[in-house]
């Protein structure tokens, strides 16, 4: 068995140029940077309307050192399918050399994936198009100013789920919809979650996904400084705490087999994660208990899928 990778082993190439306008501490920037390290230069990136799009390509500047296209909000998957089909056809007709391995990656936010882009994503996944779709999930419409999305978790304050006398943040009583399960239900060969605090894991997953033909999906938690009401220097720490509390589980699915890539033998209580974020500051102990129960159930579900207890109980 080869030595495990460390950050020092990742390619030095930078295909996302510095000087983009993403916020200080933005996890999307970290995520995109590592996706591109894994992809290398022969890639075409498609982005829907999202924070990463609007901040990286203000004409006449661009932060992208690889070919990149934005078309609209709800169609990144379909545009990526079109790019992929073109490559396929042009290779067959000799316009692109057969041996040139050009990868196609769509990178969208949670609004563009869970909500408005959901239909196009389903089309791409069910057809089996050769596309890697990455959702960087900051759990609300951050680009338009922190509005509630289909990915906003229970209790979170947003500008459209404000905290008042009647409302107490997002009230959906269950865990939000399960993007990975939805991808798997489309019979994709590969689906995974990842987290910017674990860049080597993210890098490895993107690498693996790109080596597989067909539709792949990677769902990445993306801590958001203005949207989560956190300090920029806490962005990675909070992303890490998401994993250590079981609020986020790093795992992958490959041809019917589930594997947790970041085992957590002893979990921290979710309050450790929630209490660092302004968007959850209104939560009562009772509210937090409810969230803890949701997380416990999810941990149990994942342990069952894996077939052993890789995520342990909450440490006392």
């Amino acid at each position: 068995m080869s030595k495990p990778l460390t950050v020092w082993d990742l390619p030095k190439d930078e295909f996302l140029a510095p000087g983009h306008r993403m916020c200080q501490g933005c996890a999307a920037a970290i995520t995109i940077r590592h996706i591109l390290k894994a992809a290398g230069k022969d890639v075409i990136v498609v982005m829907p309307t999202c924070c990463g799009e609007i901040t990286s390509t203000v004409y006449p500047q661009t932060a992208w050192r690889v070919p990149w296209i934005h078309v609209a909000f709800e169609n990144a998957a379909a545009v990526a399918s079109g790019v992929s089909a073109a490559i396929e056809a042009l290779k067959r007709k000799g316009e692109i050399p057969e041996e040139k391995d050009i990868k196609v990656i769509a990178i969208g936010g949670d609004g563009g994936t869970f909500d408005i882009g959901f239909q196009a994503l389903s089309g791409t996944l069910e057809r089996g198009d050769n596309v890697l779709y990455v959702c960087y999930d900051n759990e609300a419409y951050m680009n338009t100013g922190i509005q509630r999305s289909g990915a906003t978790p229970l209790g979170a304050w947003t500008t459209t789920t404000p905290v008042g006398k009647v409302w107490r943040g997002e009230w959906r009583p269950k865990k939000r919809k399960d993007l990975i399960a939805i991808a798997i239900a489309h019979n994709v060969p590969y689906a995974a979650t990842a987290n910017p605090a674990f860049p080597v894991d993210l890098y490895t997953k993107v690498k693996k996904a790109l080596s597989i033909k067909g539709p792949k999906l990677i769902h990445v938690l993306s801590t958001c400084v203005p949207g989560w009401r956190i300090e920029p220097e806490k962005a990675v720490e909070i992303a890490k705490l998401a994993v250590l509390t079981g609020m986020w589980i790093n795992y992958e699915y490959e041809n019917g087999v589930y594997r947790v890539t970041t085992p957590v033998p002893k979990r921290k209580p979710v309050s450790v994660y929630l209490r660092l974020q302004g968007r959850f500051r209104h939560l009562t102990d009772e509210d937090i208990k409810k969230i803890q129960e949701l997380v416990d159930a999810d941990v149990e579900r994942i342990n069952k899928l894996v077939g052993k207890q890789v995520i342990g109980p909450v440490e006392s």
């Binding site: 079109g82 089909a85 042009l90 196009a120 089309g123």
Partner: peptide
């Protein structure tokens, strides 16, 4: 490409044309 809507049909077309098709 058998798409799931006309919206995706033109989205695919834009992606394909952008890639040189």
């Amino acid at each position: 490409l058998h798409v799931e809507s006309e919206h995706s049909a033109l989205s695919v077309a834009i992606g394909a044309a952008a890639a040189g098709a």
